[in-house]
Nucleic acid binder design. Structure first.
Length: 680
DNA sequence: GGTTATTATTTTTTT
DNA sequence: AATAATAACC
């Protein structure tokens, strides 16, 4: 007897939702109702098949996707039955496992998570010890370490791995630096982003009984955006399915755009070989976009090499042909786009349905300027995170040290912030104490404080403060403890001392204020579970999509134009999409062309951008763009070359795209705008 | 030793 | 154009 009906699904969607045992591969084209299918599948499992929700695990890539998926399943299941469900990102799943099990690897479960800046600092330090008569590029080294980690290679395995070439001086440098790097992290009881996966996989590999435990806990596993998984994530999935083969992966090889980050498209292309007896289901009907947009998208992606055969179709034959606008320079490009957005709004359109998509973050400046000038509200997704700002990092470093005093990087960051008279000399002497006593830097400061030497005055205060707040964070709420901490260290006074521009100071102050507020929100939402530990974890795993406006109604997109990169647009949709910078050397990007990268990935990125549009798609390219401060001529992207029949190309430099009548109207409009601006 | 001037170098995408 | 790295200077 079924309680939950799948009749709201199409034939293939229903097949996907009702096949729950054994391996399943759902090839879900853009806009094919993937999330709907997956959420119905979970509801079906719980309500019809009586599978306890606690034995279902769904894994996504971003917090935002996880949150949305969980909300939608709860919408179907109700809060009570939905609560036990685990919907998590790969990274937070690994944190969860490591918090339980990391002691098997010799770390304590109060580990810190190090971000990109911390990583660079360690590599810099390592390189000061490694001289081979040459200077090495930190980014490059770090990139290689990341690559090795994503392929599951630990420092001790590196030399025997196929990636090591003793002729290559970089490989030799990496051999030393990687070892140092990993030891340093361990000494600080810290792990980096890649370690979250690497150590988890390593752990499950070394301890099959632990793998079995988690595999038995999660009897049914689903992985979203499977085309973006890397070799480690693949191993993790294998370990988690070791007790059963109830694995359902959802993805679209045409939307694989994260190879640069280690994603391996072969994971999805060869899934059927990895799991015998896989049921493959294709979702090819697009419910999102008009036929005209899908036709263009299909032609663009057709030339991508090595893809799984499939063709999307749409039955929605309304709407205009996609446009391709030729514009002058970047300011002109931004200007015509914003003008068009204003016209759309005048016609009753909502800004919430409009997005501007670009290949690279460097493109946003002219658009921001134009939007601000015309007073069109907008919101930028991604880019710099709040938590990347210096002041916020200082405060997070305080929290980190309070939680894990071994975290030497954070400790050194805040030792003299605000100034306590602990300069390089004091630091050096305490590092020496730490070395002699084989203890952490923090313990060295404690030792020195106990011995009562005069030189350690600031240090003694510092140590006392940290100890005091370890206590305070236990006794008071997170938000309270944090704000008294900021008072106690006189952080505002420190800001005042360091920023003399009042505008800048105000900005810093409000950032700190915002940080406190976010701690308050967190406290409010999590109640007594709002621990320091959880808060730090949330901060560090937050992705740039999470512009935390969680006080507001999450279902209502605000009346703002959305600006974001093509990468962060994956999974989203908008009525109107401006795909800007459709130029050679932009997409495909110059780096990809000159460094022999995979042009197919750029093509797929282009495909992702086009398929975000539901109703109207406008692509633009500039004839001229400033590159490194120099005007450079530009040309339209090869991806839309020879597809002229599928879009309407317009020269936006003049009014050539308008009929005479429209041109008159336009001129009158501009004119009256001018008059009213003069009157102001 | 720390600050400032000059010069080199960069602009891909991010959990 | 903007930023980071390096050199030069106080």
């Amino acid at each position: 007897m079924s309680h939950f009906s799948l009749s709201g699904l199409s034939e293939p969607q229903r097949a996907a939702a009702s096949t729950i045992n054994g391996p399943v591969l759902i090839l879900a084209g853009a806009g094919s109702g993937k999330t709907r299918t997956v959420t119905y599948r979970m509801a079906h499992m719980v309500l019809n098949e009586k599978i306890p929700s606690s034995s279902i695990l769904a894994v996504t890539f971003t917090n935002k996707a996880a949150k949305e998926m969980k909300e939608r399943v709860i919408g179907l299941l109700g809060k009570r039955k939905g609560r036990g469900l685990t919907v998590s990102t790969f990274h937070s799943l690994c944190v969860r496992i490591l918090k339980e099990e990391i002691h098997h690897l010799g770390y304590s479960n109060r580990f810190s998570i190090y971000d990109g800046g911390d990583q660079v600092a360690i590599v810099r330090e390592a390189l000061t010890y490694y001289h081979a008569g040459k200077k090495f590029d930190k980014k490059m080294i770090l990139g290689r370490i990341g690559f090795l980690k994503n392929n599951g290679i630990l420092p001790e395995d590196y030399i025997q791995s196929p990636f090591f070439n003793e002729e290559d001086e970089y490989d030799l440098a990496v051999e030393t630096v990687y070892r140092f790097y990993q030891e340093r992290l361990k000494f600080c009881n810290a792990i980096d982003f890649d370690d979250l996966l690497l150590l988890t996989v390593h752990l499950l590999d070394k301890h099959p009984e632990i793998a079995r435990k988690y595999s038995e806990k999660y009897q049914y596993i689903m992985v979203d955006e499977y085309q973006d998984t890397n070799p480690l994530q693949f191993s993790l999935v294998q370990a988690l399915t070791s007790a059963h083969h109830n694995i359902c992966v959802v993805g679209d090889d045409d939307q694989s755009i994260y190879a640069f980050r280690g994603a391996d498209i072969r994971n999805i292309l060869e899934f059927e070989n990895h799991y015998k007896g896989t049921r493959v289901i294709k979702l090819e009907q697009n419910y999102r976009s008009t036929k005209k947009i899908i036709d263009l998208a299909n032609e663009v992606i057709k030339l991508s090499a090595g893809r799984k055969e499939k063709t999307m179709f749409s039955t929605n034959d309304t709407g205009p042909k996609p446009y391709l606008w030729r514009t002058g320079d970047t300011d002109h490009e931004a200007g015509v786009v914003v003008d068009d957005i204003i016209a759309y709004q005048k016609d009753g359109g909502s800004l919430a349905d409009v997005a501007i998509l670009y290949r690279s973050n460097t493109q946003i400046i002219p658009f921001e300027d134009a939007l601000r000038l015309s007073m069109v509200p907008y919101r930028i997704i991604g880019g710099q995170k709040l938590y990347d700002k210096k002041e916020i990092k200082d405060l997070i470093a305080y929290l980190s040290v309070i939680h894990n005093p071994k975290d030497e990087l954070s400790l050194r960051r805040i030792l003299n912030v605000p100034n306590r008279g602990i300069g390089p000399v004091t630091l050096e002497s305490h590092l020496e104490i730490a070395k002699v006593n084989e203890c952490s830097l923090f313990e060295a400061f404690e030792l020195a404080a106990q011995s009562g030497e005069k030189v350690a005055h600031g240090g003694a205060d510092f140590v006392k403060t940290i100890r005091k707040y370890q206590q305070k964070f236990q006794e008071h709420t997170l938000a309270e403890a944090l704000s008294t901490l900021i008072e106690e260290i006189e952080y505002y006074a420190y800001l005042e001392k360091n920023y003399d521009h009042p505008k800048m100071l105000e900005k810093k102050r409000s950032d700190v204020q915002y940080f406190i507020e976010s701690a308050e929100r967190f406290t409010r939402f999590r109640g007594k579970f709002a621990t320091l530990e959880e808060f730090i974890e949330k901060l560090l795993l937050a992705d740039s999509q999470n512009e935390e406006k969680d006080d507001e109604d999450p279902d209502v997109r605000r009346n703002e134009v959305t600006l974001m990169t093509l990468h962060s647009s994956k999974g989203l949709e908008f009525e109107v999409v401006y795909f800007v910078g459709m130029e050679e050397e932009m997409i495909p990007h110059k780096k990809t062309i000159t460094e022999g990268g995979d042009i197919n990935e750029e093509r797929r990125l282009c495909y992702v951008g086009i398929t975000r549009a539901k109703e109207k798609l406008v692509m633009t390219y500039c004839q001229q763009r400033k590159i490194y401060g120099k005007d450079t001529p530009r040309h339209k992207s090869r991806f839309v070359q020879e597809l002229e029949a599928l879009y309407e190309e317009q020269d936006r430099n003049a009014l050539g795209h308008l009929t005479d009548e429209e041109a008159d109207e336009y001129i009158a409009d501009v004119f009256s705008g001018l008059i009213s601006s003069l009157e102001d």
